[in-house]
Amino acid sequence: MQTKNIELVLAPPAPHMVGDGFRVHNFIPGGYHLDMQRMDPFIMLDYNSKYYFPATERSRGVGVHPHRGFETVTIAYHGKVAHHDSSGGGGVIEEGDVQWMTAASGVLHKEYHEEEFAKKGGDFQMVQLWVNLPAKDKMSAPKYQSINNRQIAKVQLENDGGVIEVIAGDYKMTKGTASTFTPVNLLNAKLNEGGTALFNFPVNYNTALLVIEGKVKVNSEEVVPTDHFVLFQNEGVEFTVDALEKSVVLILSGEPINEPIVAHGPFVMNTREQILEAFNDYNTGKFGYLED
């Protein structure tokens, strides 16, 4: 099988705050060569690298805001996030859990550090990924897939190499837990030192990885340290990840949707008119109401 070679390796860009609770490095679409078209269907990736938030009485977070036209996927590595929405829904995303929220026609929500976590303070580490929806599904009904760590499908690697959590898509015939609208593979490779994993995705799928913990060697040649992002070429199908120390690696690979993308703030649609409609719907209460 032909090797999928590395196109580029990116160090984490300077962090910025989202609200006062998320200190993130933006890789997609702000990173060099990581615009929405290149990374389609992945249109945004904010990475809160491990960061210590001191104890506080008032939970940090991000206030009420809408989304339309895509899905938000929150992967919690350290710390806990509580969320509430204008339909009365809510919950807590705990360490190891994944929340796959289909905003689609519209969600109005807020996200805060979970109360007990905020009171104690602690390490916080998360990924928030936005997955675009095809035009035909952009105005479908919103839904949540709250996936706790126990529910995530897992594949044990040979020779005690570690485990692959199949959040979505598939890995070695094991199907992922989350359902998706277009083909998306989202995997957490939790590798022991010396562990090795082989990945295989179609040539046209936009494919990348992010080293969350540890240090890995990709395709037996490129050493990639913690918090670094790797984009693969759209040539070849297969790549390997060898853990030089105990490591956690997020792997994403998706079939491009190849439709026009018009993005403005929290709305990602296909035309400018649809964006104006989204603003108007938000302004006139069609996303509901939620107190800050």
């Binding site: 339909s87 689609a104 026609s105 209460g285 509901g288 109401y289 107190e291």
Partner: peptide, 15 residues
Amino acid sequence: SRVRKELARKNFKPG
């Protein structure tokens, strides 16, 4: 806040 709540009451139809 009252104006926006009232608009949402009239126009929000949860999916």
